[in-house]
């Protein structure tokens, strides 16, 4: 993994521990579950964890871009609801036979059109919010809180309240299919993560994302297109939410307006646990992947050990706060110098 944007630091044990806290914790957690529950390390179970986290992970990748610019997107769960319905609608060619299984093969549109529609609507949602942040100067928290309720409302109106289900096998393959035993959503997640990593660490746009989060005023004075960069990160998270939502609808063979409820909380938790600073300017895709895996492993392991899902919620909450405490500490040390 390359930390090339953030350069080589001197030896600082606290900073080093803070940087690798999440991967270390992930390894410890996997080891603990492996010892406590033999079924945990079974390849089928491990693949299961990957499949479970891949959809949330795609959105977390987009969220990483946003949080790196010191922004936030609370609307991703609602974008998931809306874009999933759009994909389903396009695949079905309308709402006439919304429940009829296999009907899409006669009346509907090809799957790639459904994917394109989900991505386009996700991009549109992101553009609206990106424009509100950069042009109207409304804080991202407020803009996307508005998006959270508005896009959910749109999804409810669009669907009339009910689900759209029963897609063609080609559609469902994207959520349930496997290539060489690996679930398709996992492959999509890995491909997107690799591309996102390359974009952040080796391109001008990636550098500008870090610069915008590090010091937007300074970046602007040096000719960095801060406004365009900020706008684009909201488009990216919108598009990835659309992609994740399409995969989710394919996996469930159904799309509905209540999909993705409170998904933003998991996504933000994963990014922050992965070490991306809420103050912007520091973090990585690698960290986010670790954060996503951490949440997935924790959920899966606790379920295998028959621990109540309420306890899971408590644990994830505690880990989230601890992760930010570590981040806060690192930020304070930075300010000391």
């Amino acid at each position: 993994m390359s930390h090339s944007h953030t350069g080589s630091a001197g030896f600082d044990p606290v900073a080093l521990a803070a940087r690798y806290a999440a991967p270390i914790f992930l390894i410890v957690l996997v080891a603990l579950f492996a010892l406590a529950e033999p079924r945990f390390m079974h390849p089928l179970n491990l693949m299961n964890i990957l499949r479970q986290v891949s959809i949330m992970g795609l959105i977390a990748i987009g969220m990483t871009f946003v949080i790196l610019t010191a922004g936030i997107d609370l609307s991703v769960g609602s974008i998931v609801a809306l874009t999933g319905l759009v994909a389903a609608y396009v695949a079905k060619g309308g709402l006439d036979d919304r429940f009829a299984i296999g009907a899409a093969e006669q009346a509907g549109n090809p799957v790639f059109l459904a994917i394109l529609a989900a991505l386009a609507v996700g991009a549109l949602c992101g553009s609206i919010q990106g424009a509100a942040v950069t042009r109207l100067k409304v804080p991202p928290f407020v803009v996307t809180l508005g998006g959270l309720t508005a896009f959910r409302g749109l999804a409810l109106i669009f669907s009339g309240g009910g689900p759209i289900s029963g897609f063609s096998p080609n559609y469902v393959w994207w959520g349930q299919g496997r290539i060489e035993g690996v679930p398709v959503p996992v492959i999509v997640f890995v491909v997107v993560a690799v591309i996102a990593h390359i974009v952040l660490k080796t391109t001008r746009f990636g550098l500008h994302v870090y610069a915008t989060g590090g010091n937007a005023a300074a970046a602007e004075l040096n000719g960095v297109p801060v406004r365009r960069t900020t706008f684009l990160v909201y488009v990216i998270v919108g598009v990835l939410s659309g992609l994740a939502s399409f995969l989710l609808s394919a996996r469930l063979n159904s799309a509905e307006a209540v999909a993705g409820l409170q998904l933003e909380l998991d996504v933000i938790a994963a990014v922050v646990i992965g070490g991306t600073s809420l103050f912007g300017g520091a973090g990585s895709i690698f960290g986010t992947v670790v954060g996503v895996l951490l949440i997935g492993v924790l959920r899966n392991g606790l379920v295998l050990m028959n621990v109540s899902s309420f306890v899971q919620q408590i644990l994830i909450g505690v880990i989230l706060v601890l992760a930010v405490a570590v981040d806060q500490r690192a930020a304070l040390r930075g300010a000391d110098r």
Binding site: H5, T6, G7, R204, L207, Y210, A211, G213, G214, N215, A217, A218, A219, L221, N222, G223, V224, G281, A282, G334
Partner: peptide, 24 residues
């Protein structure tokens, strides 16, 4: 050279020098 120097603390010296005029 601005009074606050207009530097991004989270980037290396080299990247700060080239910020906005990056070599690709």
């Amino acid at each position: 050279v601005h009074q606050d120097l207009a530097l991004c603390d989270n980037l290396s010296a080299a990247l700060n020098v080239f910020l906005g005029r990056e070599l690709t």
